[in-house]
């Protein structure tokens, strides 16, 4: 077996046709989960098999692929998926958000604004937003059919009754174009506003659960809330210790066993770009350009 033994982008053409038809129907019905015959991929379920299949069906040899895992380009999941497509599709890869044409993501939307030519591919573990409230597929399907989403509001209300606020902080349910309630994959609710009116096409793939759904560009997406408890995207009340950004989504990193900690951008490309431009946070030390000059 050589690398040439693989078809372009790994999947056979019959499979890609089936996935492509599902993607087109997903685009035509924003937020509706289209069933598809998900294939076994050479990675375990939960590692992005749905996203990988959607990416494989969309890739052309001219594409530049970026893969992020919780915002980072250099974590195991991102690196292995990037390598997978370099090996099976021979495409170019990048870590720069603005240079990518397809961005496969696990649980983040990049900080930099996306552009019209780009496609975001989300890896989705549980595509059904109602699944933890109603385990039966026939029932959740009927609820979508009838637009019966009261249960979701009860869940958010119970958050308020228990915690005084809506405590759901990730995989925060949204309503797409006033019709389907959709799980935006486990992105932090900080990212929810970016789902709406985004210039990029957003595709969602759930491999184990065998569903594909989509948000076309410039689609109206609303995070569910109440008049007296409006939706509010939240982040750590801190600025990035490396690049001093006040607006990016932050990860908290424990640095020792004495209670030491630092907050850093979850989007590594955004953080590195800012540091290269000379922004230094409280614990940032030298900038990359200063280090290079030494």
């Amino acid at each position: 077996m050589t690398d040439q033994a693989y078809n372009f982008a790994y999947l056979d053409e019959d499979t890609k046709r089936m996935i492509r038809r599902a993607i087109l129907k997903g685009v035509a019905i924003p937020g509706y989960q289209v069933p598809f015959a998900s294939r076994e991929m050479p990675m375990p379920y939960g590692w992005g098999t749905g996203g990988v299949q959607v990416t494989a069906a969309c890739l052309t040899p001219d594409d530049v692929l970026k893969v992020i895992d919780q915002g980072a380009d250099d974590t195991t999941n991102a690196v292995s998926i990037r390598k997978f497509f370099v090996a099976t599709a021979g495409i170019a890869v990048t870590e720069a958000t603005d240079k990518a044409t397809i961005i496969q993501t696990r649980h983040r939307i990049p900080e930099a604004a996306l552009t019209a030519g780009q496609i975001m591919v989300y890896q989705v573990p549980i595509p059904e937003p109602l699944r933890f409230l109603e385990p039966r597929e026939v029932e959740t399907r009927k609820m979508h059919e009838l637009e019966e989403y009261g249960l979701m509001h009860v869940k958010l209300y119970e958050d308020i009754a228990k915690h005084g606020q809506i405590a759901t902080s990730y995989a925060y349910p949204v309503r797409v174009e006033g019709r389907y309630v959709m799980d935006p994959s486990p992105i932090p609710k900080f990212d929810n506003p970016k789902l709406s009116g985004n210039a990029a096409l957003q595709l969602f793939g759930a491999g184990r659960e065998q569903r594909i759904y989509a948000i076309p560009p410039f689609t109206h997406v609303v995070s569910l809330d109440f008049d007296d408890h409006p939706f509010s995207p939240s982040k750590a009340n801190h600025s990035c210790d490396l690049c001093a950004s006040d607006t990016s989504y932050l990860d908290e990193v424990i640095t020792d066993d004495q209670g030491g900690r630092m907050f850093v951008c979850s989007d590594t490309d955004y953080c590195a770009t800012r540091r290269a431009a000379g922004h230094i946070g409280a614990l940032g030390g030298q900038t990359i350009t200063e280090k290079a000059a030494e």
Binding site: R20, I23, V27, C58, P61, D62, A214, P216, P217
Partner: peptide, 19 residues
Amino acid sequence: DAPVQASHAFRAALNALSR
């Protein structure tokens, strides 16, 4: 060259339907 030509064709169709 089916894999490559089909990929370009699908992207054109996807762009057309999503915009």
